[in-house]
């Protein structure tokens, strides 16, 4: 499918399929795989590629339109809305979800706030150093 945008669905999840489709579009926008103003695949293309019922895709597109993520131009197709705030808010939303998950996991391991912050800081440094190391190796 165009622009490297692909939909991966998890049928073992309790999350409804149409919501998973919306999640995938949001993720693609946040990662610049779909640009603001960019065209989404047609509902039928997406249904065929993801092998889901066209009704399910239709519902996902309808909801995305209602939440202001996309707009449909009659006879042309569906486009990601050109909205400066959209990208920032999507990235913020996804970052928050990722951090929330992380906090829940380490809390379950019995860590305290100070320990978590310390751990994040030290791991961040380590990972950045590791990345730099990889780049050096490449040269």
């Amino acid at each position: 499918m165009r622009d490297g945008f692909q939909v991966k669905l998890d049928f073992d999840s309790t999350r409804p399929i149409y919501m998973q489709i919306i999640d995938e579009v949001k993720r693609a926008v946040a990662r610049n795989l779909l640009m603001p103003g960019g065209k989404l695949p047609s509902q039928r293309e997406l249904a065929e590629a993801a092998r889901v019922n066209p009704n399910t895709v239709q519902r996902a597109y309808r909801e995305m339109e209602a939440m202001g993520l996309v707009e449909t131009k009659r006879g042309e197709g569906t486009y990601i809305r050109e909205d400066d705030g959209l990208l920032a808010s999507l990235r913020g939303e996804m970052a928050q979800t990722a951090v929330d998950n992380f906090i829940r996991q380490v809390l379950a391991l019995g860590l305290k706030e100070a320990e978590i912050v310390k751990l994040v800081t030290s791991r961040y440094k380590e990972l950045q150093n590791g990345k730099r190391g990889e780049q050096d190796d490449a040269h």
């Binding site: 049928f11 073992d12 999840s13 309790t14 409804p16 399929i17």
Partner: peptide, 13 residues
Amino acid sequence: QELRSQHGRSIQG
């Protein structure tokens, strides 16, 4: 969809 949401697994499962 209700089946999947209720049981937390695919129809295959």
